[in-house]
Design a protein around this nucleic acid. Structure first.
Length: 715
DNA sequence: CTAGTCACTTTTTTT
DNA sequence: AAGTGACTAG
């Protein structure tokens, strides 16, 4: 038996042992959120709830897996049948069994990002848009906007006006592109990530029988990282749980870092409205970090426009101050960071050391340095295994086995034949789909390779072959192409194909394999990753993880916050939360690195760099500052001697941010401002009106927040 | 229509 | 420094 009372603090205990009815857990960073979920799982199972009636929705499959494993550990026995995964993977499971009902009687293939871009290019050129117009939005931009408008559930016009005004003139054409994109997918049996969610929502809305059967199957639902769900995900939860359902949502508004893909923080705020009799539980004590680290993370949030009530506290009052490290350049940053890694690795063990960064490419320099010294690392985020061109090439053959109308895959597979481009590939594909033997033979005569390809695909399809069998046929077929296209590094790529085959061996069904390659490409990479390695990760991928020692690199203006967000207050604020997430990953040691100069591609020069505004605004007693000297060593700078970076009073980033803050705006007439009430935060004083439909409200104890009017009860 | 050349930007973040 | 897209010769 588990002694829940002594293992959990009172708030955690309450969350874990109250399985009935809707529960909202507001959990600060490191406050034992995962622990709470794990113990709730264990509690349910100990109460005799069948594990298969539990549904656990997380942000990554890795997170789900980890929680299930931990639950098994504390239960001391395996947990069979609990459904744990991402919204997307769950949606795929359900949609697959109901494909006809959502308009895909012949099944569908899930596309990854670059497939979607390919479709977008095709649609754009079919519509004849943007020919000769160099400034026309690129396929990637188009795709970004189309998915964003879907995820935020606003029209493209609205989206353009609110966050991409310079593209507003393309609004009309972009609506058409969005329609064409949807149409194209439908016609060729393709779906994208968004479709998984929207089709599931649609299916659950109209199919009452399915909805009820899922409801009775999943009696207990838990949703992690609720602050990063979007509207359609919230509806799915609603469908599955019902109004009084046993659903627990866990989240932290200060850690919302996915608004770029439509995550909507109002989901958390709205939760008590959607479900009835919601029990709200707050976890505030931090068990992860030492006080000096929390001091700096609290200070980072202090600078936020919309204040958070988070003032994390800990009993770990001891500990080292975080360090601010100033290497001379981003090149020497790699070496200096490497020095620190080696030192930290010795102290904490490699598994307890992580380097975090804003964007995937920022670790390239460090990766080279690590390889040279033979320091093992695993990297999360950035380019995925399955995004490598050769992997995509081979997978496109398998996609044809599974879905012959997948034109994108046709173009990819046949495009390697000399003399065949997108148009010819499409013609060939059409004749194959139509079964026009005569035409096919004509093509085969013209392109010798084609015959082999078609025969192999046909053979594999006929036999309902396993993914591994397919690869054993396709890889030899593809190898000559590989060697021809990548004469320099085909051996490395061949090894990648071997690895792909290893992964495929874990699957019996082709469709599952193909989908997993889009939904969770790295799960197996991890299995293979050797022990005793340090971790490199984008901050987004580091969500929910923690280490004894964390180093954050490239904390300079333009890189962090990313340049694109500098003039958009909302995005700028999200960057701040991103840094908050990064810093709160650290238990004992935190090192911030802000190189004094960075190399800028384009110009062949290294330019002076300014530390990130988030760093500049920190009081310098919060950290120790060390500078790299020209001789290569690191020297501590005495605080008194440093006329520390001027607070960013006139810098671009913060000036644009302060402009929109309450102080700089014409005040709302005081007569209109009164008090209001909010489900979570209670009674508050209205400070000002923000934008069309939001109010800035000061809640005693929680601080000012900007909230949509609809969720406030005006007093 | 393809394949090669040339000129131009661009590097968030993820399912 | 790479990768995209426009342009053009065959």
């Amino acid at each position: 038996m588990i002694d829940f009372k002594s293992e959990l603090n009172p708030a955690q205990y309450e969350a874990a042992t109250n399985p009935h009815g809707p529960v909202l857990v507001i959990a600060g960073a490191g406050s034992g959120k995962t622990r709470t979920i794990v113990y709730r799982l264990a509690w349910l199972v100990e109460q005799g709830i069948p594990p298969e009636s539990i549904l656990l929705m997380t942000f990554t499959r890795k997170a789900a897996q980890e929680m299930l494993t931990r639950t098994e550990q504390i239960l001391g026995r395996p947990l069979h049948g609990t459904n744990g995964g991402t919204f997307h993977s769950f949606a795929f499971q359900i949609l697959r069994q109901n494909a006809a009902e959502i308009g895909f009687p012949n099944g569908f293939t899930l596309m990854d990002r670059s497939d979607c871009e390919d479709v977008m290019r095709e649609v754009k050129s079919n519509l004849g848009f943007g020919v000769k117009d160099r400034s026309y939005p690129k396929k990637a931009t188009l795709l970004d906007l189309v998915t964003k408008s879907r995820n935020k559930e606003v029209t493209i016009d609205y989206l353009l006006n609110s966050e991409a005004f310079h593209l507003a003139c393309y609004g009309n054409e972009m609506e058409q592109i969005a329609e064409g994109y949807a149409e194209y997918k439908k016609q060729h049996g393709l779906i994208d990530y968004d479709d998984l969610l929207f089709f599931l929502d649609e299916l659950l809305t109209k199919d009452e029988f399915l909805r009820n059967s899922l409801r009775s199957r999943f009696q207990y639902i838990m949703v992690d990282e609720y602050q990063d769900t979007n509207l359609v995900q919230a509806r799915i939860v609603q469908h599955l749980a019902g109004k009084n359902g046993n659903v627990m949502a866990v989240g932290d508004d200060a850690q919302s870092i996915y608004s770029f893909r439509g995550a909507d923080i109002t989901n958390i705020l709205k939760f008590p409205d959607i479900f009835s009799n919601v029990k709200i539980i707050r976890l505030e004590q931090n068990y992860r970090s030492t006080q000096p680290i929390l001091d700096i993370t609290n200070a980072i949030l202090d600078g936020a426009l919309t204040k958070f009530d988070k003032k994390l506290f800990t009993e770990k009052t001891w500990g080292k101050k975080p360090q601010l490290m100033i290497p001379l350049s981003d090149f020497s940053q790699s070496t200096r960071v490497l020095d620190r890694i080696i030192e930290l690795k010795k102290k904490h063990g490699p598994e307890e050391v992580a380097v975090l960064f804003r964007a995937g490419y920022q670790s390239y320099g460090l990766e080279v340095a690590l390889k040279r010294l033979g320091v093992g690392y695993k990297k999360y985020g950035g380019l995925k295994f399955n995004e490598a061109a050769h992997i995509k090439d081979v997978l496109s053959f398998l996609r044809l086995v599974s879905n012959p109308s997948d034109i994108i895959a046709w173009q990819r597979s046949l495009g390697h034949i000399k003399g065949v481009g997108p148009k010819t590939a499409q013609k060939i594909a059409n004749s194959v789909i139509a079964g026009d033997i005569e035409q096919i033979n004509k093509f085969c005569k013209k392109y010798s390779l084609l015959k082999d390809i078609l025969q192999d695909i046909d053979g594999l399809r006929g036999k309902k072959s396993s993914p591994a069998t397919c690869l054993e046929v396709v890889i030899p077929l593809y190898t000559p192409i590989l060697v021809a296209t990548y004469p320099d590094d085909y051996p490395r790529r061949e090894a990648g194909l071997d690895q792909l085959l290893q992964i495929a061996n874990n699957y019996r069904e082709l469709d599952n394999f193909l989908t997993d390659m889009c939904l969770d490409p790295d799960q197996h990479r991890e299995e293979e990753a050797q022990e005793n390695t340090i971790t490199l990760s984008t901050i987004h991928s580091a969500k929910g993880l923690e280490w004894n020692a964390v180093i954050i690199i490239d904390l300079v203006e333009d890189r962090f916050p990313s340049r694109k967000s500098m003039n958009k207050p909302l995005e700028y604020e999200e960057e701040r939360r991103l840094l908050y997430v990064a810093c709160t990953r650290a238990r004992e040691e935190l090192i911030l690195s802000a190189p004094a100069s960075i190399y800028r591609k384009g110009t062949d020069f290294t330019e002076a760099a300014v530390p990130s505004p988030f760093v500049r605004e920190l009081d310098n007693y919060l950290f120790d500052e060390i500078h790299e000297s020209y001789s290569g060593g690191m020297a501590e700078k005495r605080v008194a001697a440093v006329p520390s970076f001027s607070k960013p009073s006139s810098s671009r980033g913060s000036s644009s941010a302060t402009e929109s803050s309450s102080s700089g705006k014409k005040p709302t007439p005081p007569s209109k401002m009164g008090f209001c009430k909010h489900k979570i935060f209670g009674r508050g004083k209205i400070i000002e009106k923000v934008e069309p439909n939001k109010l800035r409200v000061n809640f005693p104890g929680f601080g000012p927040k900007v909230i949509v009017e609809d969720y406030l009860e005006i007093l």
